[in-house]
């Protein structure tokens, strides 16, 4: 693989502007109430921003498959941690183990 890929300056500045705009968007959306969608919207915007940083500032778009796999693996494992922890807290009492009634 070529070890050096120079990303054009205009991409850097384009990404920078996009990040600033998205920061504004996320603040703006936060002032409005979308009910259950508040958190997903905020996280989606943050995820988009993070992807821009990872792909362009961190050159992952131009990197080897291996680097891309590593970048993906870190976040994938984070998701494993969150999903498998939350599945407990979200399902407490789903089977009537701890409900104290009748």
């Amino acid at each position: 693989m070529s070890s050096t890929h120079t990303v054009p300056l205009k991409i850097y500045f384009g990404v920078f502007i996009a990040l600033c705009v998205l920061t504004g968007v996320t603040v703006w959306t936060a002032k409005h109430d979308y009910g259950a969608l508040n958190t997903p919207v905020a996280l989606a915007i943050a995820g988009l921003k993070a992807s821009l940083v990872i792909l362009f500032f961190m050159h992952v778009k131009y990197s080897s498959k291996l680097t891309q796999l590593f970048a993906f693996a870190g976040f994938f494992w984070l998701v494993l941690l969150l999903v498998f922890t939350l599945q407990d807290f979200m399902t407490r009492g789903m089977l009537p183990t701890y409900v104290f009634k009748h």
């Binding site: 498998f84 599945q87 407990d88 807290f89 979200m90 399902t91 407490r92 009492g93 789903m94 089977l95 183990t97 701890y98």
Partner: peptide, 10 residues
Amino acid sequence: GQSAYASFVF
């Protein structure tokens, strides 16, 4: 005290 559902999956 883990939920029974989580125990099932694990």
